[in-house]
Design a protein around this nucleic acid. Sequence first.
DNA 1: CTTTAACTGCAATTTAATTGCATATCCTAT
DNA 2: ATAGGATATGCAATTAAATTGCAGTTAAAG
Lengths: 157, 157
Amino acid sequence: MRWTTHRLHSAQPNRYKMKDPVNILKEHDLKHTKQRVRVLEEIALDHVAISQPELEKKLGKEIDRVTLYRILNTYEDKGILHRIMDMNGTANYAICSSSCSEHHHHDEHVHFNCTSCFKIYCLEVNIPKMKMPAGFTAKTMNTTAYGICEKCNGNPN
Amino acid sequence: MRWTTHRLHSAQPNRYKMKDPVNILKEHDLKHTKQRVRVLEEIALDHVAISQPELEKKLGKEIDRVTLYRILNTYEDKGILHRIMDMNGTANYAICSSSCSEHHHHDEHVHFNCTSCFKIYCLEVNIPKMKMPAGFTAKTMNTTAYGICEKCNGNPN
DNA sequence: CTTTAACTGCAATTTAATTGCATATCCTAT
DNA sequence: ATAGGATATGCAATTAAATTGCAGTTAAAG
């Protein structure tokens, strides 16, 4: 994989560029370890969210279960990764716009959970403002659409 | 608790009436057992979603863990209960509009997850239509707002 | 190069969820 | 009212997920 600091002009919509993992670590005052780099690489690879179990399956021989849990937690704390819960309560992780794109800081976007391949996409769709009832003050919003993704619509498994 | 077949004219907004548990069971061809009735009563009590662990704590002496799991699953399958995942991946259950109110079938509404008391409310706020990117076909939407609820805004713990 | 603070891996533990099976309960037909 | 069959429940055992403590290792600052 080649790392770039510019937005990709890719044929795939709704995708963001990915910074060099090493830079991401530096920016957040995290030590540079090979396990941390591997996790970032793996998550950045697909441009879709990946679940904890999947990650463990892919990295289980290189990284200890516990270490993986801890890395994911610190990444979430630092705002490097988003954690998205799927319908089963499984944690999915993605590098989302606020981290991936310098011009989209803190944007809240819609997630798309494919019910066929179970992948979770970060869409470039903003969550519309909604009026809360009196007394309720919302700080953040979270929206997930469930349906069939572009890939499964094209070639359903 | 008194069960009514009419919408409550309560002082509390965003609340729905609750049918007699026995009727709910009948309507869905489910056997009438005391465990099932108790679960419905308990969930209807607060007008907010309740988590599996909470339910287990409240009903653990009357109902076996496993039975509770199974009852919640069948209720979800039958469309009697909504399952809402909170930020921890814990299942929360609520009787939502489509079941509670005959005039609001299949409405998709916003959930409110209080970050202070962790209660989950079903709001009478509809999820706005959002345009999906080409290739993505959304079937259902799920929106949760995180913030402070009316109760915790009034008297924060 | 040395030293310190932080990270990793292993073992053990806790917690959550599922499965199989024997018993109990509901409900229909008589 | 009750007998019989289908379904639900409870218990025990199992599987899976997540957390904790600690010893050994590694990164990076001086």
